Computed example of a mutant assay.
Amino acid sequence: MQTVELVSYQSAWRATASRLLTRLKTTLAANLLASSHVGSTAMPQVLARPTIDLALLVTDAVTVVNQLNLTPVANAPHTYQASLDGVTVHLIILTNEAAYQQYLTFRDYLNAHRTDGRKYTAIRQTAAQDAASYLQTKAAFMASINDKARDWLSTKDQHEHHDRTVRAELVNMCLITNPQTGEVVVENKIDAQWSGLTFPGGHVDRGESQVAAMRREVLEETGLTVNQLKLVGTVTWVENDQGDVSLGTLYTTNDYSGELLAGSYEGAISWHPLSALTPAKMAPGIDAVLKVFTDPHLNEAFWGFDDNQLRVY
């Protein structure tokens, strides 16, 4: 079975993309209305296929394809392979401005929302084991994100004109303890950029209460129905230099029912002795979150953007 190669972000991609876009602007002249570096190589937080994607908004797509002698990429609409200055790239050639903007919005949304970026990586890692279904699986996730991304874009400029207003993505996490054994439910994340043991959690959907979201996420990820959730603190990730945050509520409970699932696309689920949870086994930063879960004198874990350090208060 053919697989898809995914690699960590390379800072050189940005400079290469900028250089190639400048060349295309000269080559295509008036036929090129707009262009941008898109796709996973333009997203530092996610794993990427090591081929740069460039989106081009043009007046005449057929002329561009013929002028650059492009080869269509199978199962990828509007996408062509090209060799520019010895670099193999994918050109996404569009004549519809809304379709062009969608690529930019998807990129900008995932760059501003680290949690969804991690999900994007996890889904693609799983799908990468089968190249035949990779594009279909990726497209399904992109479709699920596009509405959220458009909503985010529609309020982005409004927020940026208010100095004290930041965009906040609401997330949650739960420490579920077996009252007889003292073991806790953990998830062994398979994300190459954020791997290790963590606890069940996820997003708060639009119009959903924090507690309802926590119960739903636990049920989806673990198969357990939780009750008597106790709010014990928060965790905040500052996502970018504009101050946008992912704000997480932290809950504990030992009241649950159901059978624990074996796992999901994000990783295996199991019971684990609390005393055996060492920083080396946990996903980055989760050791600090665990302190908030277990120490009644702590209320918050805070991950700053400038120094990329997670602190507890």
Rank of each mutant, 00 (worst) to 15 (best):
H37I: 10
L70V: 06
T26F: 04
I176R: 01
T252I: 12
A61E: 11
V204C: 12
E169Y: 15
T225Y: 05
V184R: 00
T198R: 09
A61S: 13
L310P: 01
S144K: 13
C174R: 01
C174T: 15
K189L: 14
T16S: 14
S144P: 02
A131S: 10
K148E: 12
D295Y: 04
V218Q: 06
M1C: 13
V73R: 11
H113E: 09
A48V: 09
V64P: 12
K291S: 15
T41N: 06
M43A: 03
G196S: 07
S264Q: 10
G243C: 13
L247A: 15
G182Q: 03
Y80I: 08
I176D: 00
L153G: 01
V289E: 07
N188V: 06
L231R: 09
I176K: 01
V226K: 00
F293E: 06
N240H: 05
G285A: 11
R49A: 03
E187R: 11
P284C: 10
R164M: 10
P296D: 14
P284S: 12
E239H: 01
Y100T: 02
R216E: 11
V211A: 12
K281R: 15
F305L: 05
N299G: 15
T26L: 08
I190D: 07
I286A: 11
L219W: 03
E221C: 13
L32R: 09
F302K: 05
R114S: 09
Q228G: 05
V185T: 06
A112I: 00
Y100Q: 03
N308C: 08
A74W: 04
A99Y: 00
T222R: 01
K25A: 13
T105H: 10
L94V: 10
T121M: 06
Y251G: 07
Y134P: 01
A128C: 03
A212W: 04
S36V: 12
V65L: 03
S40M: 02
T155S: 12
T71L: 09
G285D: 06
S270A: 15
F106Y: 10
G304F: 05
S264N: 14
M214I: 10
T79F: 00
P273K: 14
T234L: 04
R19C: 07
T126A: 09
